[in-house]
C-alpha cells in the first residue's frame, strides 16, 4: 500500500470511530502540481485525500479558524516537521491545546513521501531535536550568504528593489500560522506605526515589523514566501532571523509546547557585545 492509501485508511478509521471530529489534509488543486487544504468530516470525504510531495503547505494555521477547537473535540492534521513545530509554538503561545491535536506526520525528500511515527506533539521531540542539530547547516542559503557579503548600501538597494514591489496585500500574513493576531500592528492607525501608502518606505517598515514579530517563531515552512504574489524572498529574512536567535540565544522555534517565547524571556548573561 502506498503511504497515501495507508493514511487514507487511517483517516477513515479515525473519523468512523469518532476519535477525531475532523481531519485537515490535502486534496488536488487547480493544477496538477498544486494541492488544496481538505477539511474531512466523514470517512467518505477521505476518498479525495492526496498525500504526495506536492503537499507542502503548512496547514497548522487552519486549526485556529474561528470556533474550530472551542468544543475541545480532537482534530487530526497532516503536518510535516515544520508544521509540527508550529503546533508547539501555537500551544506555547496559548492559541491551542496540543492535547486536542492528533498529528498525521509525514516528510518528503526527493519526491519521496515518508510517514513519521507519533500522534501527540510530544512524541516528535526527538525528531525536532535532531532538526535543531542540523539547523545551522540547513539554514544556510547561497543567496543569504551573498546578501551578507554585500555592503550595507548594496543590501539596502537589494531589499529596496524587493520591497518596492510589495503591494501590501498581506497574503504573507494570511498564510503564516504564527500571524494569528486579531489585529495586526499594521492595521493600527492610532498611531500609524506603519506607513500605509504604497510607497517603498511603508513596505520596508511592514516587512521589518513582520520579520521582527516572527523572529524566534518562524518555522521556515515557506507559506509566506509562496503566498507572495510578487515573489519577494521573505524566506531569506526569516532564515536570517532564525540563524540569529539560534546563535545568540540557542533558541530554535517550536521545540516544545512549553518553550518560552524568545522575546518574552531573557538570560542575565545574554550576549551584549554590541552595547556601548
Amino acid at each position: 500500500m502506498t503511504i497515501q492509501e495507508t493514511y487514507k485508511a487511517r483517516v477513515k478509521k479515525l473519523l468512523a470511530s469518532g476519535t477525531v471530529k475532523m481531519v485537515i489534509g490535502y486534496k488536488p488543486g487547480t493544477t496538477a502540481d498544486r494541492r488544496r487544504p481538505h477539511f474531512i468530516r466523514t470517512p467518505e470525504e477521505a476518498d479525495q485525500l492526496v498525500l504526495d510531495s506536492a503537499c507542502i503547505t503548512n496547514l497548522s494555521g487552519y486549526l485556529l479558524s474561528e470556533g474550530l477547537l472551542s468544543d475541545e473535540k480532537a482534530v487530526a492534521i497532516f503536518l510535516k516537521p515544520d508544521g509540527i513545530r508550529s503546533i508547539n509554538i501555537l500551544a506555547a503561545e496559548a492559541q491551542l491545546n496540543s492535547e486536542q491535536i492528533l498529528i498525521l506526520g509525514f516528510d518528503s525528500n526527493d519526491n519521496q513521501v515518508t510517514a513519521l511515527e507519533g500522534e501527540k506533539v510530544e512524541e516528535f521531540t526527538t525528531l525536532i531535536e535532531s532538526i535543531k542539530e542540523q539547523a545551522p547547516e540547513a539554514l544556510k542559503n547561497p543567496l543569504l550568504e551573498q546578501i551578507e557579503g554585500m555592503t550595507p548600501k548594496e543590501r539596502f538597494a537589494f531589499w529596496q528593489g524587493e520591497f518596492s514591489r510589495c503591494i501590501k496585500c498581506y497574503a504573507c500574513r494570511q498564510a503564516c500560522p504564527m500571524c494569528y493576531c486579531r489585529r495586526c500592528i499594521v492595521d493600527c492607525n492610532q498611531p500609524q506605526w506603519v506607513n500605509t501608502s504604497s510607497h517603498t518606505l511603508g513596505n520596508f517598515e511592514w516587512n521589518i515589523v513582520r520579520a521582527f514579530h516572527l523572529s524566534g517563531r518562524c518555522v521556515g515552512c515557506g507559506n509566506c514566501d509562496r503566498a507572495c504574489p510578487v515573489n519577494i524572498p521573505l524566506r531569506l529574512i526569516n532564515a536570517k532571523m532564525a540563524q540569529e536567535v539560534l546563535g545568540a540565544f540557542d533558541h530554535f522555534s517550536g521545540m516544545s509546547h512549553t518553550q518560552e517565547p524568545v522575546l518574552a524571556s531573557f538570560k542575565k548573561d545574554d550576549s551584549e557585545t554590541f552595547i556601548l
Partner: peptide, 8 residues
C-alpha cells in the same frame, strides 16, 4: 478586543 491571549 485586540488581545490575542498569547501571554507573552
Amino acid at each position: 478586543a485586540t488581545c490575542a491571549g498569547c501571554w507573552g
